[in-house]
Structures are given as structure tokens and as C-alpha cells.
Design a protein around this nucleic acid. Structure first.
Lengths: 229, 229
DNA sequence: CAGGTATGTGATAAATGTGTGACAAAATGG
DNA sequence: CCATTTTGTCACACATTTATCACATACCTG
């Protein structure tokens, strides 16, 4: 599994490479926008970790241009690297076709988790969702595990609740089989219908206006659950 | 990791070089302003330790001119060396784009700690924060390790407490994963959740009005801690 | 209609995360 | 060297999250 890391900052590149190699990936480095395109064209890359700010040249001056150029001919998964102050950058990048983002500073575990999530989504063949954590008046921040509905206070979710909501929102409009949800949240061999039921319950209590008449998270009997149907 | 040390005082240069080599860095020396620029242009330098007073030539007559010249084309981290009486020099240098300063005389540990902090900041990709150590009625001096809240006596912090507060304040408004804090304070493979918890405790006792209801340093369960949320 | 299954709900037990205090070990300064 | 301070380790308390169990309700089928 080959990952291309694009960042002009050598210290950060080395950290990224070290972390991802340790997680079992083959890493290739590029340090500017033209180098990124060249590397991508010369190697079979499975995912790109792409810093937003980096030196380039006219027509290819930063990470956004790289993202846009790659998207003209490929749907390889792209994860943006940006700092927290640059939320416009995140939105811009996602609109240009990036799949996810990582906020600096990040923990190694966060990085690996993001990479694995994005690779899983790509492997499942699901089309990308624009603004995956927005839905009408609702927004969800998977990094802070915070659910926001306009006009109400932000709600903090627990780790498992946030994982469930993330999977549901990334696959909005569809019913996900219970078995798949259990597998994604508890891993192979973990979890149970019972545990999923309780987790659904807890999540509904936190995110639905009236949990007893749920509108966001709905059930198809005998199959599973979906978000935003 | 290559560090360029610029100082006309050979004894001090040797001390600086010895200390930083012992900490694992590759050291390059320059002894005047023109030599500094030449060395910087000929090598891949990751950080410059730059004495303020040193011989130069017209247009490049001291450390400030070097700093200014380098900043026209590079954002390599720069640490100024100056004596304690020259606070105007410090302000002048920081305005010209230096990242931090070290006051002579200094301890080897102080030097290494400053270098590591500045490299870490550079690696995090975070733009320099204006007045990073001010926050409302609070101020923190990382060199003196002194925490001040208006209307109360200054509080002296230990080395680790000051390191933790520095990381938190430089990333104010964000939750920093515990793993990242541990890594930054104790280095790769060092520290533990246990040790972080104790350090958080000790720091809260010193800086919070009521450590049992902390307002400055807050926890996001399962993720980490943040300052000024 | 009765029985079985799926799903929702609540309560409690178990597990995990975080805060606090005490003491040992290590580091530091005079 | 010794006294003091700092840091690390351990134990326990408390808070939160997750797992388990029990029961209720809805729906479908024979």
C-alpha cells in the first residue's frame, strides 16, 4: 500500500513518513507541488497526504492546485494537512476533491486512523461525499467528537458514539447492515446486536430532537440503520 | 538535522557546537555576518543560532542584518543570542523575524530546550503566534518559567510544568492529544499517561484559580487537554 | 389469536478515564 | 555533601463510558 506524502517541511515529512511506515505503509516523499505531480505520475500511489501550503510554480502553486490537477485524471484518496485556523482551507480543499483532512498538530494515532478510514472508504467503492460532516442544520466534528445543531448547544459524544455517527454520516442516505456497523465499530469478532442497539439508543438521545421519533437515524427492520434517509 | 551557529567569539562557538552536537545535531559554524549568509546559502540548514553582535560589513553589519537578509527568502527558524541587558535587541530581532532568543550566559540545557522547542514549532507548521504567552489577564515567560495573573503574585514553574504550559499556550484554543503532549515533553518513547496526569495536576494547582474547577486547562475525555478553550 | 422475532428502553454491573494524595527516587543548588 | 526541589511511581477515589440483563412494544407469520 503506497502513500505519497507531500510537504515542504522536511521535519514534518520525516515524522509523517516514520509514523506511516511503522503502520505498515510504503512511503514516498515529495516536497513541492511539481514534485508531487511527478511522483504521483511515476508511481502506483494508493493515497496522498497533502500539505496545503507549499512552494510551487505558476499554475501549480500550492496543495490546492495539486489536488485539482490530480482530480482531473484520478480519484486516488487525498488527505489534506492544514492548521486549525484555516477552516476555509479545509472547505476549499474538500470542494476540490480531497477526501478528508488532518489538523496539525496531530497524534500518530490520529494520522493512522484517518488514513485507514479513507482507505477503507476508497476500498468500499463509495462515491465521495461533499462536506461529509454537514447535513442541513447539522454539523459534526469527528476530531473533537462534537455534534452541533443550529440553535442548540454543541453536544459532546463519546468515542463509540462518534465512531457510529461518522460511519452513518459518511454513508448518508443509505441503510447500513447491522453486521457491517458492528464490524466497523468493534472490529472483527467484536460487538453484538445488543451492543449496537444500546449505542444507537445513546446516540439518538444525543442527536435527535425527539429520540422516540427519530428523524436522523432510522431503522430498516431486519437489515440495519441509516442516516438522513 | 543541521544547525548553523553564527558567533564571532570562538570559545562560545565551540561551546555551542559541542553542546548541540552532543544533543545529536550536525553543526556548521560561521564567525561573521557575510560568512553566515554564505554558509546558509551553501547548505541545507534547519535552524540558525545567531549572535546579535558580530563583525560585518556595510549592508551586512550585524546579526540583525543577517536575520533580515535571510527572512527575505526563507522561513528557517532563527534563535538570537544576546546578553541580558539588551532587551531592545530582543524586541528588534523578533520584529525582524527571529523565532526566539537565548540570554547569555545560558546553561547547555536551556540551549537545547530552546532549540528543540523552536524546531518543534516549525515542524508543527503553525504560523508564529503574536504575543503567544499572553492570554487575557495572564502572562507566561518561558525563559524565566514565570506565570503571572493580574492581581496575584508571580508563580514559578518547574521545567516540565513550563514546557507543558508553553505547548498548551502556543496551541491555545485547541485540544492537544495526550499522546502528542507526552511525546513533546518527554520525547519519543518517554513519558506516560500517568506522568502526564500528574504534571497536569501540578500545573493546574499553580495556574488555576480553583484547580478542582479548572478554567484554563481543560480535558476532552479520551482525547487530551487544551488551553483557553 | 398466539408465538416468535426485531427493536426500543431502562437499570445496573463492569470497565475505563481522570483527578488526587502520598511517598520514593532522582535532580539540583548552596 | 546535604538539604531542598522536582519528577516518577503507586494507590485510591470519583466520574464517565461501555457492556449486560431484563422487560416492553411493534410487527409478522402460522
Amino acid at each position: 500500500m503506497h502513500i505519497l506524502v507531500v510537504d515542504d517541511d522536511r521535519t514534518l515529512s520525516d515524522l509523517l513518513a516514520f509514523t506511516l511506515r511503522r503502520a505498515g505503509y510504503d512511503i514516498h516523499l515529495a516536497f513541492d507541488a511539481p514534485g508531487a505531480l511527478t511522483a504521483f505520475q511515476q508511481m502506483a500511489i494508493d493515497l496522498i497526504v497533502l500539505d496545503v501550503n507549499m512552494p510551487g510554480k505558476p499554475g501549480l502553486k500550492d496543495g490546492f492546485d495539486v489536488c485539482q490537477a490530480i482530480r482531473q485524471s484520478s480519484d486516488v484518496p487525498i488527505i489534506l494537512l492544514t492548521v486549525r485556523d484555516d477552516e476555509e482551507d479545509v472547505v476549499k480543499g474538500l470542494k476540490l476533491g480531497a477526501d478528508d483532512y488532518i489538523l496539525k498538530p496531530f497524534s500518530p494515532r490520529e494520522l493512522v486512523a484517518r488514513v485507514e478510514t479513507v482507505l477503507r472508504r476508497a476500498a468500499s467503492g463509495k462515491a465521495k461525499v461533499d462536506a461529509p460532516y454537514l447535513f442541513g442544520e447539522i454539523s459534526f466534528d469527528p476530531h473533537l467528537r462534537t455534534f452541533c445543531r443550529q440553535g442548540t448547544d454543541p453536544v459532546s459524544l463519546t468515542n463509540l458514539e462518534a465512531q457510529l455517527l461518522e460511519v452513518l454520516m459518511l454513508n448518508r442516505g443509505q441503510i447500513l447492515p447491522a453486521e457491517l456497523l458492528i464490524n466497523q465499530i468493534w472490529g472483527p469478532g467484536g460487538g453484538s446486536q445488543e451492543m449496537l442497539r444500546q449505542l444507537i439508543r445513546r446516540l439518538r438521545v444525543k442527536v435527535e430532537i425527539d429520540p422516540e421519533s427519530p428523524e436522523l437515524i432510522q431503522n430498516l427492520p431486519g437489515i440495519g440503520y441509516g442516516f438522513g434517509l
